Simulated assay, not measured.
Amino acid sequence: MDYRLNDIDRVIKNAVLVMEDSKYQIYEICESARRELFTLSQELNQVLAETGDIIDKVDALELEYRRARIRLTEVSRDFVRYKEEDIKNAYEKATQLQLDLMVYREKEGYLKARRDELQQRVRNVDKSVERAESIGSQINVVLEYLSGDLNQVTRIIESAKNRQQIGLKIILAQEEERKRIAREIHDGPAQSLANIVLRTEIAERMLNKQEFEIVKEELIDLKVQVRSGLEEIRKIIFNLRPMALDDLGLVPTLMKFVQDFEEKTKIRTVFDTIGKETRLSSAMEAGMYRMIQEAFSNVHKHANASYVALEMTYQAHMVKIVVRDNGNGFHVDLIESRAKDSSHFGLIGMRERVELLEGRMEIESAINEGTKITIHIPINPEQGKE
Results as ranks from 00 to 15, higher is better:
8 I>V: 06
9 D>E: 14
12 I>C: 07
12 I>D: 04
14 N>F: 14
18 V>K: 07
20 E>K: 10
23 K>I: 07
33 A>Y: 06
36 E>P: 05
51 T>I: 09
52 G>N: 11
54 I>C: 14
58 V>T: 13
64 E>I: 03
68 A>G: 13
69 R>D: 09
73 T>W: 12
76 S>T: 10
86 D>F: 09
87 I>V: 15
91 Y>K: 14
91 Y>C: 06
103 V>E: 11
113 A>W: 12
123 R>C: 12
126 D>F: 09
128 S>C: 11
133 E>N: 11
134 S>M: 12
134 S>R: 15
138 Q>W: 08
140 N>H: 05
142 V>D: 13
142 V>E: 08
144 E>K: 15
148 G>M: 15
150 L>V: 09
151 N>M: 15
154 T>L: 10
164 Q>D: 04
168 L>H: 04
169 K>I: 05
169 K>E: 07
172 L>T: 05
182 A>M: 05
184 E>D: 10
185 I>G: 02
193 L>I: 04
200 T>S: 06
201 E>S: 13
202 I>W: 01
203 A>V: 07
207 L>S: 08
209 K>L: 13
215 V>W: 02
221 D>W: 05
221 D>I: 04
224 V>D: 11
228 S>L: 04
232 E>P: 03
233 I>L: 02
241 R>N: 03
244 A>V: 02
248 L>R: 02
251 V>Y: 01
255 M>Y: 02
256 K>F: 13
257 F>H: 00
257 F>T: 00
258 V>A: 03
260 D>C: 00
266 K>Q: 14
273 T>P: 01
276 K>H: 14
278 T>Y: 11
284 M>R: 00
285 E>N: 00
288 M>P: 01
288 M>H: 05
289 Y>W: 02
291 M>W: 00
292 I>C: 00
304 N>E: 15
305 A>Y: 04
310 L>E: 00
311 E>H: 06
313 T>P: 07
319 V>E: 03
319 V>D: 01
320 K>H: 12
322 V>F: 03
324 R>E: 10
324 R>G: 03
327 G>D: 12
330 F>S: 07
339 A>K: 15
340 K>D: 11
346 G>D: 09
351 R>C: 02
357 L>C: 04
358 E>I: 00
363 I>G: 01
378 P>M: 10
381 P>I: 09
